[in-house]
């Protein structure tokens, strides 16, 4: 049972990483790493939406905030592994690449793909986030107290 949980955690991490990847980036890294294997669509890429939820007062009762666009697809490799993708936006090519990577991460190619696709994606996202955080930090107010005038 514990193995199943860990496997899900790892899969959740890479699927989430692929969903956040900028347009075309995961596909470019995949194509540099390997020739795409043959696969069959179980569900060809399709565009839809999902309702984003939130909570009143950030922690209270849920409410519906609005929708976001979403692309999903499912494919199977000739060796039987099934890959899914659910990614933000209207990006069929990116969804296809993400589903293929998801399937391949369940094969012997996993280690190679982690090094060639997932790690670079993670590094890029970490750097981009850090740059934004550093710009925000530069706008943090440093207060200094003037002489108070009561006396």
């Amino acid at each position: 049972m514990k193995d199943g949980f860990d496997a899900n955690t790892a899969r959740k991490a890479w699927m989430s990483l692929l969903a956040r990847a900028p347009e075309g980036r995961a596909a470019a890294l995949l194509d540099t790493a390997m020739v795409r294997p043959a696969f069959t669509w179980l569900r060809a890429p399709e565009i839809g939406g999902t309702m984003v939820g939130a909570r009143a007062g950030a922690t209270g009762a849920p409410f519906n905030l609005g929708e976001m666009t979403l692309t999903r697809c499912t494919l199977t490799l000739e060796t039987g592994e099934i890959g899914h993708a659910y990614i933000q936006g209207r990006r069929k090519a990116d969804a296809a690449a993400a589903a293929l990577i998801d399937a391949l991460m369940q094969t012997d190619a996993a280690e190679m793909l982690r090094a060639a696709v997932l790690d670079p994606l993670q590094d890029e996202q970490t750097r981009a986030k850090a740059a934004r955080a550093a710009k925000a930090a530069a706008t943090k107010v440093d207060f200094f107290t003037m002489v108070r005038g009561e006396d």
Binding site: I47, G53, E67, M68
Partner: peptide, 11 residues
């Protein structure tokens, strides 16, 4: 748009 689901409430 077909509705694919609903998200968890954002944190």
């Amino acid at each position: 748009l077909p509705r694919f689901g609903a998200s968890e409430p954002v944190d």
